[in-house]
């Protein structure tokens, strides 16, 4: 009975094993299937009313954790218990991080949230105008990340500077924008 039940379960472990051996396509398939089975979990677990953080964000955080901790899966154990143990941990973690405060440190999340949090009510055209008020590097970086939707790493490659410099410029740009907004309400 054991060997016959749930053929899909073995497949997922098979995909993960192949992924850990360096097969990119199998890794993508594994992550897609993992994401699909995590979505329901995330919708049911995530407490409502976390500003700027929804179930799909949690799915992404779990996928990143799965990726970072993929070496802790023992290749002879079933995948699901391992996957959902990580999912539970990240769900609790998300509530701890996002549940109590609205402001999120941008450097923690700039990689995952390429778009500026929409708390300002700015439209894209307004945004372009505000961004034009910035100068030099901050303007290039904020344009690339917030308007064109590039990631930190892509922006760094494009501008030929380090990701750290991109973060700093991005942070400065956002700060300057916030100050501009306060001056002209």
């Amino acid at each position: 009975m054991k060997s016959g039940e749930k053929p899909g379960r073995g497949d997922l472990a098979q995909l993960f094993r192949s992924a850990l051996a360096g097969n990119e396509d199998d890794y993508r398939r594994f992550l897609e299937r993992a994401a699909a089975s995590l979505r329901g979990f995330c919708r049911s677990r995530l407490p409502p009313g976390l500003p700027g953080f929804d179930a799909e964000d949690l799915v992404q955080e779990i996928l990143m954790a799965v990726h970072a901790k993929r070496h802790t899966w023992k290749t002879d154990e079933p995948v699901e218990p391992w996957l959902f143990a990580i999912a539970r941990y990240k769900a609790i973690d998300a509530f701890r991080k996002h549940g109590r405060r609205i402001e999120v440190d941008i450097s923690d999340h700039a990689n995952t949230m390429a778009v500026l949090p929409d708390e300002s009510g700015l439209r894209e055209s307004d945004m372009r105008r505000s961004v034009d008020a910035l100068d030099g590097r901050s303007r290039e970086v904020v344009t690339a990340i917030s308007i064109d939707g590039h990631s930190i790493d892509e922006t760094a490659a494009k501008l030929k500077i380090t990701p750290g410099a991109v973060r700093i410029a991005f942070h400065r740009g956002l700060k300057a924008l916030a100050e501009l907004r306060e001056r002209k309400p």
């Binding site: 890794y27 993508r28 990689n111 995952t112």
Partner: peptide, 15 residues
């Protein structure tokens, strides 16, 4: 970032 893009990036890094 969309989840698909994240998955593409992670799988490339994993390879």
């Amino acid at each position: 970032m969309r989840t698909e893009d994240l998955i593409a990036r992670l799988s490339a890094d994993g390879a």
